[in-house]
């Protein structure tokens, strides 16, 4: 009974989406030739703009690195306040709520607000990434704190280890791989997200994508796209390699 209701609702939702009047499905047949034309204009890519592309990539990378760094610093403090095992519910509940709200605000919206607040350039990008990534990292870090097994810590305390020694030799070894893994994962995400920040004027290579597409210079847009694909593949490979080390 319950299952057939769920399937029925799902079928209705799909049907409703497909039959919506403003979908414009009739435009689909014409899309193929138009896409082919665009792709034709992208080939061959104009490689003469590589100095600009490199500058844009470098700025994107800087935004991702600094945004991640500041998010790590903020998250370290907030994670303690969000950890069930360290603070009372009166503290961790509202802090976790705040982190959930931060995570729910789309990055592009945060970036637009930051551009409004501090002007164009990489700074609003760094601030937006910091804000957005903190919502996720602080949550992950607090979970790493909560998942520390108590028995090894008790064993060190029983042997006379001081609190700082317990932190160094029983708590940190349990948390470190989780924290490093989450941070590297978030850095890769930050890099991907900062690629589009330029579209709203928050720095990085996204500005070039927008400029070249709007001015119909598809051969140059192709070069930027290739550079972005290269950077994303590189960061993904790096992430995969590091994740293996942290297991």
């Amino acid at each position: 009974m319950g299952r057939s209701v769920i399937w029925g609702a799902l079928a209705l939702a799909i049907l409703w989406s497909l039959t919506s009047a403003d979908m414009g499905l009739e435009k689909l047949p014409g899309a193929g030739p138009r896409l082919t034309e665009f792709l034709g204009r992208m080939i061959p890519p104009d490689l003469s703009i590589w100095p600009e592309v490199l500058r844009g990539l470098a700025e994107t990378l800087r935004i991702a690195i600094l945004g991640t760094l500041f998010a790590v610093i903020l998250s370290a403090g907030l994670a303690v306040l969000a950890a069930e095992t360290l603070v009372p519910p009166a503290i961790w509940r509202p802090v976790r709520g705040l982190l959930a709200v931060i995570r729910s605000i789309p990055l592009i919206l945060v970036a637009m607000l930051m551009v409004g607040a501090v002007g164009l350039g990489p700074l609003p990008g760094i601030l937006a990434i910091t804000f957005h990534a903190t919502g996720m990292l602080a949550k992950f870090y607090s979970e790493a704190i909560d998942n520390v097994a108590a028995a090894p810590v008790a064993a060190l305390e029983s042997a006379g280890a001081s609190r700082t020694q317990q932190l160094r030799w029983a708590i940190w070894p349990q948390m470190a791989p989780v924290i490093l893994r989450d941070t590297v994962f978030r850095f890769e995400l930050n890099l991907r997200e900062s690629l589009i920040l330029g579209i709203v004027g928050a720095g990085g290579i996204g500005l070039y994508v927008q400029t070249y597409v709007r001015s119909f210079q598809y051969d140059k847009a192709a070069t930027v796209t290739l550079a972005i694909v290269g950077l994303v593949l590189l960061s993904e490979a790096l992430n995969t390699a590091l994740q293996k080390r942290f297991s």
């Binding site: 028995a151 090894p152 008790a154 064993a155 305390e157 029983s158 042997a159 006379g160 030799w169 029983a170 070894p173 349990q174 470190a176 791989p177």
Partner: peptide, 16 residues
Amino acid sequence: RADIGFIFQEFALVDR
């Protein structure tokens, strides 16, 4: 505490 040694039933080792 340093003078009292305890061998835990569940070993209580730091795995990594």
